[in-house]
């Protein structure tokens, strides 16, 4: 049974990558987006780029995971193609997880491109590649699960984009990407702690700039894991509700 579910996840993922993600326009966007982002910041503020680099990697993860995934899920809902997956002998958890993996892989491609640019041009140092990979993977999965939650909550592609922006932009400004969380006014700081990206940025800073202790790093990964399962649970509940 478990093998059947894993096989199903793999085939849905492969289909999504082929049919949607790895299309030439998406790949070019995936390369251009971090390039433009890096260039814009290096022109505006050539000093202190190394401080900004982990945040830019996290930002690339936010846009990379949520943008395409929300379109894929809502598009498939509209055309009835998602129904085809729901007819297959698979649990809704597996179908959603396959969708989340697709978003995470696409986001991963963009984040890795951003990481490469940050290492080459901003001199960012990935001191512990294993911890960096774990942190980035958790970030990608969590943000992708958030994207899935947004996508299953709406009916239209444009609604998914609009709703995503309600999460994306506050996260960019309140999660320590540009301004350290400690510098954010107190009431807003509470909001920061409710956002998964805060823990991603903190963890990424920890494994690149050594600004986070190992204890905090562990706490960050634990919180991100909780967010991931929370978003997955909520997405599944929303999807199941639509079947009632």
């Amino acid at each position: 049974m478990l093998m059947d579910e894993l096989r199903g996840i793999y085939y849905i993922l492969m289909k999504d990558l082929k049919a949607y993600y790895f299309k030439p326009p998406n790949i070019s966007w995936g390369i251009l987006f971090p390039l433009v982002l890096a260039l814009a910041f290096s022109l505006r503020n050539p000093e202190g780029l190394i401080e900004l680099a982990p945040g830019l990697v996290a930002m690339a993860a936010v846009f990379g995971t949520t943008s395409m995934e929300a379109i894929v899920i809502t598009f498939e809902r509209r055309t009835g193609a998602l129904e085809r997956l729901l007819l297959a002998p698979l649990s809704t958890h597996s179908i959603l997880f396959a969708k989340v993996l697709g978003g995470a892989m696409f986001g991963g491609m963009i984040s890795m491109a951003m990481t490469a640019l940050a290492v080459i041009f901003f001199k960012m140092r990935v001191t512990n590649p294993l911890l960096f990979s774990i942190t980035l993977c958790l970030t990608l999965l969590t943000l992708s699960a958030l994207g899935a939650l947004v996508a299953v909550s709406v009916k239209e592609v444009f609604e998914a984009q609009t709703l995503s922006n309600y999460f994306r932009f506050p996260m960019i400004f309140l999660s320590g990407v540009f301004i350290p969380v400690q510098s954010i006014p107190l009431p807003l700081r509470f909001v920061s702690y409710l956002l998964p990206l805060t823990y991603s940025v903190d963890a990424l800073k920890g494994v690149t700039l050594h600004q986070t202790s190992i204890g905090w790093l562990m706490l960050d990964t634990a919180v991100l894991t909780l967010f991931f399962f929370g978003f997955m649970y909520a997405s599944n509940a929303m999807l199941k509700r639509s079947l009632k």
Binding site: G8, Y11, I12, K15, G80, A81, E83, L85, A88
Partner: peptide
């Protein structure tokens, strides 16, 4: 679901995949 096939009212396969690829994907899912 393992034992039934369903032809829904709308032709809801994947536009981006060929006829052969759609059948292959269905065979993988089942």
């Amino acid at each position: 679901k393992r034992r039934v096939g369903v032809v829904t009212e709308t032709s809801n396969l994947y536009d981006e995949l060929t006829a052969g690829e759609n059948l292959l994907f269905a065979s993988q899912l089942y």
